[in-house]
Simulated assay, not measured.
Amino acid sequence: MSKSGTSETPKKIELAPGERPTLKTIARLSGLAVPTVSRALADAPDIRQDTKTRIRDIANQIGYRPNRAGVRLRTGRTNVISLVMSTEHDAMNNTGRLISAVTSALRGTPYHVIITPYFPDEDPMVPIRYIVETGSADGLIINQTEPDDARVRYMLENRFPFVSHGRTALSEQHAYFDYDNTAFGSLAIKALAERGRKHIAMLAPPQTQGYAQNMIEGARAAASDEGVQFSVIEGATSHSTVPIVEQAMTTLFHQADRPDALVAPSIGGCVTMVSALERLGLVLEQDFDIAAKEAVSFLRRFRPGILVLEENVDEAGDFLARALMHRISHPDEPPMQRLVYPDNSAWKVDR
């Protein structure tokens, strides 16, 4: 405290002319030994949290960046986490939100994120094998999982740390975060049936992926319970381009036995379907209803009558990052796992 009784502004740390920010520099400024500084920056569990915070504050102020080659030589780690993601584009998808959530969760830790892309026509094992064989990352986050996912089997066999956004047939053995799409499919059918709809069609994700199979399974079971007709739209998926979805909708609604309700698992698919039907002269909440899920509050602004459930991608990204750090640091402990259930009371409709 100053003589006036007010808190003094902490003095800004400055380097001497020509001095480079190194571990020795941080040790000198903090009064701690170099090994202690190194362990604090590596988030060692035996270092007090207030010490870690002080060391990181000094490191940030002087612009210290660890030499990754040196870190790897000393620890065998790269302090790199890779998100392995397809370049397949889906308008208004969740990818950006997921990346932001993962990087936010890693803020203040030694880890940095890199994005490792692969093309839709490329074997998704290619980037996985490269990272595992070269050790270019300490762990991986994958999505678009399949029930019998070759990537998961390979990383389990090689004891390589990873976490998946989505479950697999081997989920008991690995870390994952998943949204219960079986429940979403069921709830969507029930909500539409409550509105008196009798023929419900779903623009499903690619059916090779686990969450698509779960969603369809839940929808079919609920349709049977409710005594309504259910079908999966042919010729397009929720990952298809806008023209392909528009063509599939035009074909479907020119049939005599056309649906009177729809299920959309993505914002882009929902918007495209509604727009296509409106161009055919059909009116939402009169000629058809639609139930959808979204990660960004958009659909109710687009059309207030859409039934909407929210999927929290920020929660997913945060959990995926923490679960992967846990696998890297504690490979012999049980993997972190979370399955999030949609809330039936959470359907949001603006009137």
Rank of each mutant, 00 (worst) to 15 (best):
V245W: 00
G268S: 10
V245G: 05
P206H: 10
P243K: 08
V274A: 01
A221K: 13
A221R: 13
A256D: 13
D260P: 09
L252I: 08
M249I: 15
A264S: 15
R220Q: 13
E246Y: 01
Q209Y: 15
T237G: 05
P206C: 09
S224G: 14
L252T: 14
V232P: 03
P265M: 05
V242L: 12
S266R: 11
L252Q: 14
P259V: 07
D260F: 08
A222L: 04
V232F: 04
T241G: 14
L252P: 05
Q255V: 09
I233L: 15
F253Y: 14
P243Q: 06
V242E: 14
V263M: 15
G269N: 06
F253C: 09
C270Q: 06
T272P: 06
P243E: 09
V228H: 09
A256S: 14
G210I: 03
P265K: 07
L262R: 02
S231H: 06
V271G: 08
C270V: 05
L277M: 11
A264W: 02
A261E: 06
T251A: 13
Q207L: 15
L277W: 01
V263C: 11
Y211D: 02
M273H: 01
M273C: 14
S224D: 13
S238F: 02
D260G: 08
Q247K: 13
I267L: 12
P259R: 03
A256Q: 14
D260L: 04
A222Y: 02
E226N: 02
S238P: 03
I216F: 00
G218I: 01
Q213K: 11
A219W: 08
P243W: 07
Q209V: 15
E278W: 02
T208F: 10
P265G: 06
T272I: 09
F230Q: 04
E278M: 10
Q255S: 13
C270A: 14
T250Y: 12
E217T: 12
C270T: 11
A256P: 07
A221D: 11
M215S: 11
C270P: 02
S224A: 14
G218D: 03
T251H: 13
A276H: 00
M215D: 02
Q207S: 14
A261V: 05
